[in-house]
Design a protein around this nucleic acid. Structure first.
Length: 563
RNA sequence: GGUUUGGUAGUUCAAAUAGGUAAGAAUACGUGCCUGUCACGCACGAGGUUACGGGUUCAAAUCCCGUCCAAACCGCCA
């Protein structure tokens, strides 16, 4: 028998009970007469008290031991187990890093990934994984309760022509032909709607062969949702807002400031990006002031002020500007709607223009006028100020500001290829006025961005054969490609397709936000590193020539990274 | 695909003023001491071809070149 109790559950009520415990040696302290061990298992830590006569074998950190003992009172609220027998179940090698240190151990990420199984023993990572499980569980319950049904879609699919690169899987039965791993279950979920399924969801693994970031892995979980009999974006937006509010209330103690919504075009004008971070990112705006002479440049930006940036912080920001400009600017103007900080700027017209661009009435506008011949690195200024805001104000307050970006353009133009591509994907329903459909149309699409992180993306879909074909034509997809990739789908669109739409929510990113973390690798059991390698498995790896021959594959040129 | 930074005991880091004593410390490891520790403490010990290969120099961890590996940014991410 390995255990009668686990290390987390023993308490004052168990005093004088005989117990058997198994666990890892979290920490050991050897004195002349006594030995103290903190014994750790999945559930917690129990303190052990051992008299020298029972300590017969050398024990080190992370040895796996089983003990027999009696529960005794340690002090008012705590117990310890007085041990009379110890077995070593399994010894441990000298550790590559300390597991019992608090917080993040002082060790390179490479080692933590290489010994991921040891990293998982650490409380921080273990707790993340437990929370991950809880969150995913709640998501599933939520949508099942709302009468969605959960269905799987295949992982071995066809290569898609647009978007991110696919992972390719060679076929043994059909030499020279390939499967691909899906970037999302897009077509399948639409086919489910065509099949009369009313509300579908799936917690789906998706794959994209692109380089990684802190908030991006190549294989990731997506909460995939599709609903029939809707044709307006607000149908989905309402549903998701409710869900997001629910999940954040459950796992994130801070309230959500109400959702904002902005059209793509306006977002670009206002924030210069379609993923605005309304919290810690200041944003650049271009202001023209007529009376300024040609030899001066203007640098202007807005501090989005959800956090009551006060005078002393303004002073710090000005200090940064002073350092970078070496005080050689001509003028700094600091303006908010109440003109509280600076009275030099009284021209009402300009103020009104600025007001329109302001996100909220508490925002602060900073304008710096400086001589042309000063070479200024704007990004450096923005970076420094962002850091200041992030460290001092935002990080502590855990505020979330979700914003919907809606009505993306239907197409975008790629200058390199001189080709048009779908902004979202070719199944996105266009907004059509006066029966006109061209490259300039917008679409019934929506992204949800929270604090600069793209959380969800979706659209109302095309449910009409002719319209879908027009889109393919505008994309100039060759007939043979249409036949190869989409013939079945176009065909399906001929059979009384309900209006439908949906959304995909990045679960890993959602968890990142819910747990207020920065690096997605800490929230995934076995993440890949920056170059898409699994450092522990050392994958990807070579395949022997015999097997390659069976697949009909010959390697022509080796890439350095994959040697 | 592009740019940048880095690789020194098992691990985390030092080794200044652009090369100059015998490459140090903490922790982990080993032995011993210590009346109850709780990140125990104390003493002693072991542990290094400074990633690998080449070059410059009287002299290289330090400068240069190549290879390998890692971290970060950009591109990319419908």
């Amino acid at each position: 028998m390995y255990r009668t109790h686990n290390c987390g559950e023993l308490n004052i009520l168990d005093i004088n009970k005989k117990v058997i415990l198994s666990g890892w040696v979290h920490n050991i302290r050897i004195l002349k007469k006594y030995i103290f061990i903190d014994l750790r298992d999945y559930y917690g830590i129990t303190k052990l008290f051992i008299k020298k006569k029972y300590y017969l074998f050398k024990i080190n950190n992370e040895y796996l031991i089983r003990i027999k003992g009696i529960v005794k009172k340690k002090n008012k609220n705590n117990i310890e187990v007085h041990v009379y027998k110890i077995n070593i179940i399994n010894k441990s090698k000298i550790l590559p890093f300390n597991i019992n240190s608090n917080g993040i151990p002082k060790v390179s990420k490479k080692l933590r990934l290489k010994y991921r199984y040891l990293d998982i023993r650490r409380k921080v990572i273990k707790d993340n994984l437990i929370k991950r499980s809880n969150i995913i569980n709640k998501i599933r319950q939520y949508f099942l309760k709302k009468k969605f049904i959960e269905l799987e879609t295949p992982l071995l699919v066809n290569n898609t022509i647009e978007g991110a690169r696919n992972f390719i899987i060679p076929s043994r039965n059909f030499k020279g032909k390939f499967y691909s791993l899906p970037q999302s279950p897009q077509i399948f979920k639409q086919l489910l709607m065509i099949g009369g399924i009313d509300k579908y969801f799936q917690i789906a693994k998706c794959f994209r062969d692109e380089d990684l970031r802190k908030d991006r892995q190549t294989e990731f979980l997506q909460l995939d949702i599709e609903i029939s009999f809707i044709n307006k974006i607000k149908n989905i937006i309402k549903l998701i807002e409710k869900f997001i509010k629910y999940i954040f209330k459950k796992f994130y103690n801070q309230r959500i400031i109400r959702f904002k919504k902005i059209k793509y075009n306006k977002a670009i004008k206002k924030y210069n990006t379609d993923k605005p971070n309304l919290i810690n990112k200041i944003y650049n705006i271009n202001i023209k002031i007529k009376k300024i002479k040609k030899k001066y440049n203007i640098l202007s930006f807005i501090l989005p002020n959800f956090l009551n940036i006060k005078n002393f912080k303004i002073n710090k920001i000005i200090k940064i500007i002073n350092i970078i400009f070496k005080k050689k600017y001509k003028k700094i103007l600091i303006i908010n709607n109440k003109n509280k900080y600076n009275n030099n700027f009284k021209k009402k017209k300009i103020l009104n223009i600025i007001k329109k661009k302001f996100f909220s009435e508490y925002d602060i506008l900073i304008i710096i006028i400086y001589n042309n011949n000063l070479k200024i690195n704007k990004n450096k200024i923005f970076d420094k100020i962002n850091k200041l805001l992030y460290n001092e104000a935002i990080y502590k307050k855990n505020i979330l500001i979700p914003i919907w970006i809606i009505n993306f353009p239907l197409f975008k133009y790629n200058i390199k290829n001189k080709k048009y591509y779908s902004y979202h994907h070719p199944f996105t329903c266009p907004i059509i006025n006066n029966n006109k459909l061209s490259y300039k149309n917008y679409s019934k699409s929506y992204d949800l961005v929270i604090n600069g992180i793209e959380i969800a993306s979706g659209s109302i879909r095309i449910n009409n054969y002719k319209l879908q074909k027009k889109i393919f034509n505008l994309l100039k997809i060759k007939k043979e490609n249409i036949n190869k990739n989409f013939k079945f789908f176009l065909n399906a669109l001929k059979y009384g397709v309900p209006p439908h739409g949906g959304i995909g929510i990045g679960i890993d990113r959602l968890i990142l936000l819910l747990l207020n973390k920065k690096d997605i690798k800490n929230l995934i059991p076995f993440p890949k590193n920056y170059y898409n390698k699994d450092i522990m498995l050392n994958s990807p790896s070579k395949i022997n020539n015999n097997y390659l021959f069976k697949l009909g594959i010959k390697i022509i040129k080796k890439n350095k990274i994959y040697k």
